[in-house]
Design a protein around this nucleic acid. Sequence first.
DNA 1: GTCTATAGACGGATAGAC
DNA 2: GTCTATCCGTCTATAGAC
Lengths: 193, 193
Amino acid sequence: MQHPQHPVAAPRTDTRMRVQKVALELFAEQGYEKTSLREIAERLGVTKAALYYHFKSKEDIVHSLTDDHNARIDELIEWAKGQPADERTRSEILDRYVRIVFDGAEVFRFMEQNRAAMQAMEQGKGDRLARFRDRLDALVGLLAGPDAPLRERVRATAALISASATCMIGWDSHEDPAELRAIALEIAAELVG
Amino acid sequence: MQHPQHPVAAPRTDTRMRVQKVALELFAEQGYEKTSLREIAERLGVTKAALYYHFKSKEDIVHSLTDDHNARIDELIEWAKGQPADERTRSEILDRYVRIVFDGAEVFRFMEQNRAAMQAMEQGKGDRLARFRDRLDALVGLLAGPDAPLRERVRATAALISASATCMIGWDSHEDPAELRAIALEIAAELVG
DNA sequence: GTCTATAGACGGATAGAC
DNA sequence: GTCTATCCGTCTATAGAC
């Protein structure tokens, strides 16, 4: 008789997730470039080499943190392209967008504060919506219409930027998150309405 | 008879400004941390050591780029503190704020894209409004009132963030700058009004 | 005011034992 | 899956000649 589920000696199967957690903390505290793999390993109580078993490079850690969130934005864009360009669709785009940023607030805050580093990583990825700016432009196009006048495009941009900023800025810790999300959505709706 | 104005051999007295120009270009292209003094010197046709004659460190180059603009924000805050907290004052705060960001758009864009690096530099400067976040909070306090409810504080924050983003985002190069500035102001006024 | 040369430190990444 | 040890590159900053 065997116990195939659990190998003996409980080999810390969650190390990968612990690396992600610590890396995100340090990237947020001191920035991506100023955080070395040595620091991440030290705070985790392992060695640099251990990190390379779970991630093939420093950039790979970042991608493991950001890919899911970026994919959700891409899905939103794809979905919206198949919808009629009416008021109903616009308000659903904003609702879903705010929810995505709100759910991944820590990661989006990291991306925001390290935009220069993110842009450097995005270089050379010509395919799809690899670049942050492409995603923003796509959403603006869907919210304002592809050939909208400058004023409408600027307002749609401002709507997205202020909504996400509201979701990811560090407020007093005892503010009501649900209220923040509602206010973010209200502001965005006002600007595209 | 002498010619006291121009020393012989025209010793490139503008090198300091040329360094600032090239540094800002490179910081914007690849980010502050990924730009080395070697690269700056190379693009300028001088050596690293020459840079150290004009600036005492890499950070010092950044401060030479940003200090004036930050001081203008500080002056705006000081001025506003002595004004009555009415509609007239709020709208003048926004007008002056937008003008400051608009005038220094390249530098503000650099600070925005390298916020992590900026924050790292701001560590340990306890005095005055050394930190970016302090300036934002001060302006929000002046626009919304010191003990305003959450919604008003969030809206004031969104006003400042979207106005500055509008001024410093890279739009199609043939857009009318004056129109952009007007739209930025309109959005901000709407959110604090 | 600009140069050459170098110090001194730290970074990411890999090899190979256990 | 984690370790030790190390390679090799790059960086900021300085010393000192011209």
